[in-house]
């Protein structure tokens, strides 16, 4: 099976980085796991909690191929807590992005099913 990464890039308001990550892990991660997402890694940039400048959090999840991705997507659509988290988190965010990626060696497999 081909791993697909779901990558959340969260730019926290100054001083909110640690609280944002704690909220993500407490309020978002359990539901994400229930939707089939497997936590791969969490990165904090720069690697210190800043109180006057934004930290960027990069949180990487794995799912199994397109089927795993759609399973996650449809489950999230049926789970109001997923979008509720993002609405609440907005107060701590400067911006965010969600990206989907895979290893280069898996691109052809993903494109050809």
């Amino acid at each position: 099976m081909t791993a697909v990464q779901i990558i959340d890039d969260l730019v926290a308001r100054p001083g909110e980085g640690k609280a944002l990550l704690d909220a993500y892990m407490a309020d978002y991660a359990p539901g994400a796991r229930a939707r089939g997402m497997v936590l791969d890694r969490v990165l904090v940039s720069p690697p210190l909690w800043m109180d006057d400048q934004p930290n960027t959090l990069t949180i990487v999840w794995n799912v199994e191929g397109a089927a795993g991705w759609w399973g996650m997507r449809l489950a999230a659509g049926a789970d109001p807590s997923a979008t509720a988290f993002w609405e609440t988190a907005g107060a701590r965010l400067v911006s965010r992005a969600r990206r989907f990626a895979a290893a280069p060696e898996d691109v052809e497999t993903l494109c050809n099913g």
Binding site: W69, A76, R98, G113
Partner: peptide, 22 residues
């Protein structure tokens, strides 16, 4: 099949449809 499984659909266009995406 391909319409649903091709990454251009789910990893590119779908973000307009996905409430989890900004």
């Amino acid at each position: 099949g391909p319409y649903m499984t091709n990454p251009y659909h789910w990893a590119r266009v779908d973000r307009w449809f996905d409430p989890e995406c900004p």
